[in-house]
Computed example of a mutant assay.
Amino acid sequence: MRRDGSSFETWLLLGPALLVLAAITLYPLVRTLWTSFTDAQLGGGPASFVGLDNYLFALKDPGFRAALLRTLYFTLLSVGLEALIGVGTALLLQERFPGRTFVRVLVILPWAVPNIVNALMWRLILNPEFGSFNALLLQTGIIGQYRSWLGDPAIALSMVAIVDAWKNFPLVAFIVLAALQSVPTDLYEAARLDGAGPMARFLNVTLPHILPSLLVILALRAIEAFRVFDIVYVMTRGGPADATKTVSFLVYQQYFSFLDAGTGAAYAVVIALLSSILILAHLRAMRREGSH
């Protein structure tokens, strides 16, 4: 920016956007931070300052620690499946075969479905009485009777993570597919001449080229998966027996079920701090990608 008034013009043009950003982001953040230091009740009377009591309660709360562990498990399982399925799908879509364009359109459809619609659809598919998933497994002889996939505390969270992975793996697949387009074909020819098999070509040629893009998209997906709420709310409401209660659902419950705004705000701030760690990991991955 030059010293001829362009700096003033720049801030003048950015001013409306910055005001809107402050109104919808900065103010709620500051308000939540302040509420976390009080004993505020949703719809209650005036709040009193309690210092770090809410944070100390959150750190000592076994329910919060359990929800945090569930959220970490959900994130690792969902993002891990997305990485495996996404990379495999990208490698298949990279090959030339009749109808490849049509298949690419089909692959992107799960990602295009809204989250709520996706959750409702899978809730019906996994229904223990008339769900098509049970019918398919029963007809193929994999199971002997219908099973309540979302009613079993041992597998409910895993099923929700699988549904989340099904919804988002196309995004990983197409990011990796775009990265595959930049791999020089002569590297594969040279690897074949050296006697490298398919796995060796993938590890020594393909993986180094797609890894920067893969790390970036997986970091983004990890941030999003860690904040999961909508799919849990629609499919299980945090049940059965709190088996799918993630930290975001815990915050919602603390606010709107228990009306404890102070503790709920403290939970939200802790989640924001943990999400910031994932954001820093994402920024490092982007910096690494830019340095290559």
Score class of each variant (00 low, 15 high):
residue 1 M to S: 13
residue 5 G to D: 10
residue 8 F to A: 15
residue 9 E to K: 11
residue 11 W to K: 04
residue 13 L to E: 04
residue 14 L to Q: 06
residue 20 V to A: 15
residue 21 L to W: 14
residue 23 A to W: 15
residue 25 T to E: 11
residue 26 L to W: 11
residue 27 Y to I: 13
residue 29 L to M: 15
residue 30 V to Y: 07
residue 30 V to R: 02
residue 31 R to N: 14
residue 32 T to S: 15
residue 36 S to P: 05
residue 37 F to M: 11
residue 38 T to M: 10
residue 41 Q to I: 13
residue 41 Q to T: 14
residue 44 G to V: 06
residue 44 G to A: 15
residue 45 G to I: 03
residue 46 P to K: 09
residue 48 S to Y: 07
residue 49 F to W: 15
residue 49 F to P: 00
residue 50 V to R: 08
residue 50 V to M: 06
residue 52 L to R: 07
residue 53 D to C: 01
residue 54 N to G: 04
residue 60 K to I: 00
residue 61 D to Q: 10
residue 64 F to K: 04
residue 64 F to V: 10
residue 69 L to R: 12
residue 71 T to M: 11
residue 71 T to F: 11
residue 71 T to G: 09
residue 72 L to E: 00
residue 74 F to D: 00
residue 77 L to H: 01
residue 78 S to D: 00
residue 79 V to M: 02
residue 83 A to N: 05
residue 86 G to A: 04
residue 87 V to D: 01
residue 87 V to G: 04
residue 89 T to L: 09
residue 90 A to D: 09
residue 91 L to N: 08
residue 92 L to S: 02
residue 92 L to N: 04
residue 93 L to S: 06
residue 95 E to F: 00
residue 95 E to D: 07
residue 97 F to Q: 11
residue 98 P to R: 15
residue 101 T to V: 15
residue 105 V to D: 07
residue 105 V to G: 06
residue 112 A to Y: 00
residue 114 P to K: 10
residue 114 P to C: 05
residue 115 N to Y: 07
residue 116 I to F: 12
residue 116 I to D: 08
residue 116 I to L: 14
residue 120 L to C: 03
residue 124 L to E: 11
residue 124 L to N: 12
residue 125 I to N: 03
residue 126 L to C: 01
residue 126 L to P: 01
residue 127 N to K: 03
residue 130 F to R: 10
residue 133 F to N: 09
residue 137 L to Y: 05
residue 140 T to K: 12
residue 145 Q to P: 00
residue 147 R to H: 14
residue 154 A to W: 08
residue 155 I to V: 15
residue 156 A to R: 05
residue 159 M to W: 15
residue 160 V to P: 03
residue 162 I to W: 03
residue 163 V to M: 05
residue 166 W to T: 02
residue 166 W to A: 05
residue 170 P to K: 11
residue 173 A to T: 04
residue 175 I to M: 12
residue 179 A to D: 09
residue 179 A to M: 06
residue 182 S to H: 14
residue 183 V to G: 04
residue 184 P to E: 11
residue 190 A to I: 09
residue 192 R to I: 04
residue 193 L to N: 12
residue 194 D to T: 10
residue 194 D to Q: 12
residue 194 D to F: 07
residue 197 G to Y: 04
residue 202 F to A: 10
residue 202 F to S: 07
residue 203 L to T: 13
residue 203 L to S: 13
residue 203 L to E: 09
residue 207 L to W: 15
residue 209 H to A: 13
residue 210 I to H: 04
residue 214 L to G: 06
residue 216 V to R: 03
residue 216 V to Q: 06
residue 217 I to W: 01
residue 217 I to S: 03
residue 219 A to K: 02
residue 221 R to P: 01
residue 228 V to K: 10
residue 229 F to M: 07
residue 233 Y to C: 01
residue 233 Y to N: 13
residue 234 V to T: 12
residue 237 R to Y: 10
residue 238 G to M: 05
residue 239 G to L: 08
residue 243 A to N: 07
residue 245 K to A: 14
residue 246 T to E: 03
residue 246 T to L: 13
residue 247 V to K: 05
residue 250 L to D: 07
residue 251 V to G: 02
residue 253 Q to Y: 10
residue 255 Y to P: 01
residue 256 F to S: 08
residue 257 S to D: 13
residue 258 F to I: 01
residue 258 F to M: 08
residue 262 G to C: 02
residue 265 A to H: 05
residue 267 Y to P: 06
residue 268 A to N: 12
residue 273 L to W: 08
residue 274 L to P: 02
residue 275 S to V: 14
residue 278 L to R: 10
residue 281 A to T: 10
residue 285 A to V: 05
residue 286 M to F: 08
residue 288 R to G: 11
residue 290 G to C: 00
